[in-house]
Write a protein that binds this DNA or RNA. Structure first.
Lengths: 209, 209
DNA sequence: GTCTATAGATGGATAGAC
DNA sequence: GTCTATCCATCTATAGAC
């Protein structure tokens, strides 16, 4: 199963678990606005009216604007983490470090391109969460980061990889995927699969002994 | 001359050309707030009072909040571009592609770490500029990107480098430096020089044949 | 060039009817 | 669960004195 065929099409898929139609529509509109304009520049009025509802309707489904951001961040991060885990679980257990890291890089890059708006909010808008919500998201982020770092370390230990410093190398590898959300616009020629192919090759070469 | 010794210390140095003390102080406070909270979450009242002035005083020096952002972005981008050019001009003209690209990577990475707040605003807050200002900044950004891409292309042409695609490789190289501003906090152990060393090595390895 | 005072607009959130 | 109406805080920017 290739990465490209494993996933459906963006936010509707990511937020499919939200059963109430209005709640889901509100969240998807909020997501688009947060990604395009930023959390603070987005008004609750805008989110509500673009969802076909009155300004007050939002508060039936979410207690505040920040709560919507948290919901987006929580689903986004959880989904990304789960997919990384699933991808690793699917590989032949005798696979070498290079093969395992390539799967991680490909999956992580593809996610950031395919789900650009979710990923953009997850990478850039976390500062607007309150302290508790921020801490909860940070826990998931650490899980992801540790997962990547462990693979790099394993590769270094067995001699497949060679880097000046495992921590900086891990940072560099994740940067390749994360920075996509700063410039990438879907539907303008570049496909997520193309990006994943290119960046996985480059990232792997960066750490290979 | 090493990169580290070539530069003084952050925003005061970058905005040294602004002679009026209040105007300079306002801009530096605005920079810190924009970098920490984002453009929209920053209030003009906050910028003024943290500069030791009344809310109205700002408008004597800048016509609007957006004008401050533009000033920061213009000085930031111009300075970064000029330093890249100066660094390249300083190298031995017989230097190979690897050596030239290493200087670019080192300089670009060091800039993003040493001047994190300026760089963060330059990378993340441009969406809040008006159309004309945005276009002016984008022109400078293209100059920088083309400069990096040309070096990668030259290295590929002469056989020193080998990449699946020059455009994606250029993106990846710049991402290494740019993504620093998302997580880097000065004074917490990691030095800009250390970062520049590590990322220049990793970036070079990524494209070397 | 700096101040106090305030205009004028907007936005997050709530009240209460249906 | 959705609406209309509105409160109240906040924010950008301006007016006018010193």
């Amino acid at each position: 199963m290739t990465v490209a065929s494993a996933h459906g099409n963006s936010p509707n898929e990511v937020f499919a678990a939200i059963e109430n139609a209005s709640a889901r529509r509100l969240l998807i509109v909020a997501l688009d606005e947060f990604a395009a304009r930023g959390f603070h520049a987005t008004t609750t009025r805008d989110v509500s009216t673009k969802s076909g509802l009155s300004p007050a309707a939002m508060y039936v489904h979410y207690p505040s604007k920040e709560a919507m951001l948290f919901q987006i961040a929580l689903v986004g991060h959880s989904t990304a983490r789960d997919r990384l885990r699933a991808a690793l679980a699917e590989i032949d257990q005798t696979a070498g470090s290079a093969q395992r890291l390539e799967v991680i890089l490909r999956e992580f890059t593809f996610w950031h391109a395919e789900h650009t708006t979710v990923a953009r909010v997850c990478e850039y808008e976390l500062q607007h969460l309150n302290a508790e919500h921020r801490a909860e998201i940070d826990r998931i982020r650490r899980e992801i980061e540790v997962g990547v770092r462990d693979e790099v370390q394993r590769g270094v230990d067995c001699g497949e990889f060679s880097v000046p410093d495992v921590r900086y190398a891990t940072m560099a590898l994740t940067s390749l995927a994360i920075d996509i959300v700063r410039w990438y616009t879907p539907g303008t020629g570049v496909t997520p699969a193309e990006l994943a192919d290119n960046l996985a090759v480059l990232g792997l070469k960066m750490v290979t002994a």
